[in-house]
Computed example of a mutant assay.
Amino acid sequence: MRWRIHHESEVWGNRWLSVRRLDVEQPDGERVDYHAVRLADIAATVVTVDAQVLLMWRHRFLTDTWAWELPMGIIEAGETPAEAAGREPQEETGWRPGPLAELIRSEPAAGIMDSRHFVFRATTAEYAGPPTELNESDRIEWIPLADLPGMIRRHEIVSGITLLGLQQVLLSERG
């Protein structure tokens, strides 16, 4: 069953995010006022070397939580998801990933938000120097893959895109 948008307008927005008001016709013919978020796409990178993964210890002020996350960021205009996935680790951690392979893609809240999350994996990396993004994390560490299930259980990893990427790697390592 397909919903149809008759009209859409912006309520508020900036270069990354737009809150939208939509006039939507549901499959039964009823028209409703609907609100949605149009958000830029995100790329994240799982960098694994010698059974370790590159993670950043970050504070997220909106939820006032600390947790480990993958390097990630907005896919800039004119940039491919793979280009963003190659750029973000170097900017945020100082590590330049080797060749990237697409790991998984998700639409985390497709009923209210149109952002797509692209997760790539690199199995090599080279240190390029200190991070250029200075407001991203307190610590950057190589964490053993074997430690990840316990970290997830203890809620030390809670970011959706990070969980998705790491769990996909753990699944691929099993078989």
Score class of each variant (00 low, 15 high):
Glu83Ser: 09
Asp147Met: 02
Gly165Ile: 01
Glu136Lys: 12
His7Phe: 08
Leu171Pro: 14
Gly94Tyr: 00
Arg116Lys: 08
Glu133Trp: 09
Asp138Glu: 15
Trp95Val: 00
His59Gln: 05
His35Pro: 15
Ala101Glu: 10
Leu103Cys: 05
Arg15Trp: 15
Arg60Ala: 07
Val37Gly: 09
Glu91Ile: 11
Leu134His: 14
Glu88Ala: 06
Asp28Cys: 15
Asp64Cys: 06
Ile74Trp: 12
Glu136Asn: 15
Arg58Phe: 06
Ser137Lys: 03
Glu30His: 13
Pro99Tyr: 01
Pro27Asn: 08
Gly13Lys: 04
Ala125Pro: 02
Ile157Asp: 07
Leu62Cys: 11
Thr45Asn: 01
Thr93Cys: 04
Gly129Leu: 04
Asp41Glu: 11
Phe118Ser: 04
Gly111Phe: 04
Trp68Tyr: 08
Ala36Met: 12
Thr123Asp: 11
Thr80Met: 05
Pro108Val: 01
Arg15Tyr: 15
Thr124Asn: 04
Gly94Met: 03
Asp33Val: 14
Asp41Gly: 01
Leu171Val: 12
Arg58Val: 12
Val47Ser: 00
Asp114His: 05
His117Ala: 09
Asp33Leu: 10
Gly86Val: 15
Ile75Tyr: 09
Glu83Pro: 03
His155Leu: 13
Trp142Ala: 04
Thr162Leu: 14
Val119Glu: 07
Tyr127Phe: 14
Ile140Lys: 04
Arg15Thr: 08
Val37Ala: 08
Glu92Ala: 00
Thr45Phe: 01
Val53Ile: 07
Ile75Lys: 10
Leu134Ala: 13
Ala36Leu: 15
Ile157Met: 03
Gly13Ala: 05
Phe120Ile: 02
Glu102Asp: 07
Glu8Val: 14
Thr123Pro: 10
Thr162Glu: 08
Trp95Arg: 05
Glu133Gly: 15
Ile152Thr: 04
Arg105Thr: 07
Gly175His: 12
Leu70Pro: 00
Thr63Ile: 15
Thr93Met: 02
Trp57Tyr: 09
Leu170Pro: 09
Ile152Pro: 01
Gly86His: 07
Gln168Ser: 13
Arg116Gly: 14
Asp23Tyr: 15
Ile157Cys: 09
Ile140Gly: 13
Asp64Pro: 13
Val46Pro: 04
Gly73Met: 10
Arg96Asn: 00
Arg21Lys: 11
Arg20Gly: 07
Arg87Phe: 04
Met151Gly: 02
Thr45Lys: 00
Glu133Asp: 12
Val46Ile: 03
Leu22Trp: 08
Glu133Ala: 11
Val46Glu: 03
Tyr34Met: 11
Trp16Arg: 14
Asn14Val: 06
Ala122Arg: 02
Phe118Gln: 09
Leu70His: 00
